[in-house]
């Protein structure tokens, strides 16, 4: 399929992108790697009037050790994150999950910022940054603001970003051990039916893929862990209060069940990486 017509502008800087975005935020879309947006446009499920290509804005592709955290530029491609020495050493969960997104071709083009800003509950990286208690940095006409991952994912394809804002950096706490990622799908290239990102260092955080209309945490499990429950008992509460959808690939009931199995496996695996 061929997208409906649009106007294409290539931004040379964040400021330029934000300027164009502010002209008509509702019918203007930012294009980074394009691997969330272009498929929708080809099926004409998205028909923006203006496409602002931020793919070449300099200075937004990096993985940096920033002392107490790791800072990742929003335009960092999945493949670059996957093989980043800094990420592998300090946030191996993120490097690992970046290597699980889609397929190699998708990972060569897709960016972490694009993936997070798209806000798809079936995507892997949102769960990883949620488990890592990330801070997301957004620039906009009202300046820069920091958004906690807990506040960022609002609903189906809906984030805390305002239509005139651009995600520019992701900051994640270091978690060199005590992590795991479980992804369950029918074909490797597909979105997860259910996924689990777990980080046990510090306060345990367990985030779930595709267990609701947005990326969310397994609060029941986290509470049980905080109360000293073992992985099996904590995992049994993984779907507490959650209402995943039923679709072609899985019913809600099955997703709830899978969450308990995958969370248990993630917790066991994460504990093992702690040695």
């Amino acid at each position: 399929m061929i997208p409906a017509s649009f106007e294409y502008r290539r931004a040379g800087s964040v400021e330029e992108a934000l300027g164009w975005l502010s002209e008509d935020p509702d019918s203007t879309k930012l294009l980074a790697g394009g691997h969330s947006l272009l498929p929708l446009m080809k099926l004409r499920l998205a028909t923006p009037g203006v496409l602002v290509d931020v793919g070449r804005v300099p200075g937004l592709s990096y993985v940096r050790d920033a002392g107490d955290h790791v800072a990742i530029g929003a335009l960092t491609r999945h493949r670059d994150l996957e093989i980043s020495e800094v990420a592998r050493a300090s946030v191996p969960l993120l490097a690992h999950v970046a290597g699980q997104v889609g397929d190699p071709q998708v990972r060569h083009r897709g960016t972490i910022g694009g993936s997070l800003a798209h806000g798809d509950p079936a995507s892997d990286l949102p769960a990883a940054v949620l488990a890592l208690d990330a801070t997301l940095v957004a620039d906009g006409p009202r300046g820069r603001r920091e958004i906690a991952a807990d506040d960022f994912f609002r609903g189906f394809l809906e984030t805390a970003l305002e239509p005139d804002e651009m995600l520019t950096e992701i900051r994640v706490r270091k978690a060199p051990s005590g992590w795991a990622f479980q992804k369950f799908n029918r074909r490797a290239q597909d979105w997860a039916i259910v996924g689990v990102a777990a980080v046990l260092d510090g306060d345990p955080r367990v985030a779930l893929v595709n267990m609701g209309s947005t990326t969310l945490r397994a609060r029941g499990t986290e509470e049980a862990l905080a109360a000293g429950a073992d992985p099996t008992d904590a995992a049994a509460r993984a779907a507490d209060g959650l209402e995943p959808s039923s679709d072609l690939h899985a019913s809600a009931e099955y997703r709830r069940h899978l969450a308990t199995v995958l969370v248990r496996r993630a917790l066991v695996e994460a504990a093992a990486t702690r040695g």
Binding site: F184, R186, I193, T232, A235, A236, H249, A250, S251, Y254, H257, T260, V261, R264
Partner: peptide, 20 residues
């Protein structure tokens, strides 16, 4: 034979829940 169908068949065939 999807994973869900297999899981359901185990649950239907035996009282032991297929879960954790």
């Amino acid at each position: 034979v999807t994973p869900e169908r297999v899981w359901r068949s185990i649950g239907a065939a035996a009282p032991v829940p297929g879960g954790a």
